[in-house]
Design a protein around this nucleic acid. Structure first.
Lengths: 115, 115
DNA sequence: GGGGAATGCAACTTTCTGGTTGCTTAAGAG
DNA sequence: CTCTTAAGCAACCAGAAAGTTGCATTCCCC
């Protein structure tokens, strides 16, 4: 890996870790899964189907919003939450980088064995 | 989303959450980044560059191993850690699913507006 | 065999997380 | 205007996580 790529990556690691952490809870992952169809839902809407209090869900949504995985907007007396796909896309960039490094390593190993 | 796809996904959510959580810490993400070149490194090797105790790193490695992101193998008096790319690949599957749902939603919205 | 290096194990502290309950505030609906 | 519904806020609790220190173990090397 070239040094420039490594430092560019290193700068983004804490941010990526925050997004990974936001998704690292089954409840939050379920919320994201529910929102990934592009819908905008209120907190009480997002509550049903889950055996938790509204406040618990509310806290989870705040965690997701801090990581910018989700955006909220007040509409009258309810606040509507919607997915923000950008941070998740950045995760995919990270994963692709890991995979490509891994594949390169495999290829090098293979060519070494075959020599 | 068809019901079959939703239930298949739901079954895998807790597992995916575990992997996300394992990557959701800057130290652990740095460890994974370091291992993604296919190398096998001992714990003390993985310690340098990080301002933590060996035991702290050791605990982080255990978390990664529990999530199967990493595999360890004893070699003499040291244990060598290597990346296991499979769980991270499963994360990509999840992300691709989210993205495709999102894209579908955008497309539907667009066709609705244009009608 | 003895010493140093790499690791494992256990106890402990501190901080963070996930969750609850109770109360307040704001906004629609009748 | 009053009632109900949606949400926010604050305090609290139990358990998990992150990290440390100290000691035991195992293995390599001389």
């Amino acid at each position: 890996m070239p040094a420039s790529a490594r430092s560019r990556l290193a700068r983004r690691l804490p941010r990526a870790a925050m997004v990974f952490a936001a998704l690292g809870d089954p409840t939050r992952l379920a919320l994201v899964t529910r929102l990934c169809d592009g819908s905008r839902r209120s907190i009480t809407q997002l509550c049903d189907g889950q055996p938790l209090t509204r406040q618990a869900i509310s806290k989870h949504l705040r965690v997701l919003e801090d990581a910018r995985v989700v955006r909220s907007e007040r509409a009258g007396r309810e606040s509507l939450y919607a997915l923000n796909p950008q941070p998740i896309g950045e995760l995919r960039d990270y994963i692709d980088l890991v995979s490509s490094q891994w594949d390169d390593a495999l290829a090098r190993l293979k060519s070494f064995v075959e020599k």
